[in-house]
């Protein structure tokens, strides 16, 4: 009886196997197809709008002509400002978690904070930034307010990536330094950090891309629909690519007429963000492959 069953269901089982695996493979194809079609759609519609002047000029004629230079500059400045906020705090937190912390209530509490901060909706960061930086601190709508808001937004990402990189440096590095009479901090600063830094920075580049692509947190803290000049201080408001696309596509008086500008801006933003991500992913793969410990 049992003997017969062992071979009996053979064909059936493999047919079912084939069908299920087909659907599983389909998800992968679908994921790639979705991404490819989004990229293709933006490339096809965006490339005609691109030109040197699009990248190097201010908008003209109610945004219907000219370029998006101030928005590119604003996006880059805000993203770098965010990184400048997040790196000291995030790296410091990562060093504490990876090098000093002993398991206990405090550490679980900190981890709880980090992981929950990562889950706070970006628009809530916008509200918080408006209430704290713009109003309470009186920074106004400005590069400073926007950078601080975005900085807190990417803080969990930067922290997690940095901690991961620190944990990947072998324990034996620390032992060796301590055995040579280094203090704890000397061991961290002179041996652990130099080894972990490339990985920590790679994670930060991914976060930089995220900061550049965000819209909601800067809508009320930093971005202006239009500026006449480049920002000359951190207390100026700036244009940004993400809010520019949103404004032109939904709020402007010439939604249809500015389509080329919208596609062009979307393509520039996409290239910027995906470029950063791709750069970070490639570096990360190289680091992993080249690691000798």
């Amino acid at each position: 009886m049992l003997e017969a069953r062992k071979g009996h269901t053979h064909l059936d089982r493999y047919r079912r196997e084939g069908i299920v695996l087909f659907f599983i493979r389909l998800t992968a194809v679908l994921a790639l197809a979705i991404m490819a079609s989004i990229l293709l759609y933006l490339l096809v519609n965006g490339i005609p709008a691109l030109s040197i002047s699009f990248l190097t000029e201010f908008p003209r004629d109610s945004m219907m002509a000219g370029g998006v230079l101030p928005a590119i500059v604003g996006t880059v400045v805000l993203a770098l400002g965010a990184l400048l906020t997040a790196i000291p705090l995030g790296f410091g937190a990562a060093i504490y978690l990876a090098e000093y912390a002993k398991p206990g209530y405090l550490v679980s509490f900190i981890r709880l904070g980090v992981s929950n901060l990562a889950g706070v909706p970006s628009v809530v960061f916008g509200l918080f930034g408006l209430s704290l930086f713009v109003t309470t601190f009186g920074f106004g709508r400005s590069i400073l307010s926007g950078s601080l808001t975005l900085g807190l937004l990417i803080l969990p990402t930067v922290t997690a990536a940095a901690e991961e990189a620190l944990r990947q440096t072998p324990q034996s590095f620390r032992e060796a330094a301590l055995a040579l009479g280094a203090s704890r901090f000397q061991a961290i600063r002179q041996v652990v950090l130099p080894a972990a830094l490339p990985g920590m920075l790679t994670g930060s580049i991914l976060a930089l891309g995220r900061a550049a692509g965000e819209t909601a947190p800067i809508m009320f803290t930093a971005s202006a629909a239009f500026t006449l000049a480049m920002p000359d201080s951190v207390f100026r408001e700036v244009m940004a690519l993400s809010t520019h696309i949103y404004n032109l596509a939904t709020n402007s008086t010439h939604i249809e007429e500015t389509r080329p500008q919208q596609f062009g801006s979307a393509l520039v933003l996409l290239v910027l963000v995906l470029g950063l991500s791709m750069f970070a992913i490639i570096i990360r793969a190289k680091l992993r492959r080249g690691r000798k410990w």
Binding site: I34, M35, R210, G213, Y246, R259, Q262, L274, S277
Partner: peptide
Amino acid sequence: PAVELLASIPSVILGFVGMV
């Protein structure tokens, strides 16, 4: 990495594609 890239597409771009 491709999945990671999909995750890093800015939401405003996805919204724009959905709209247009």
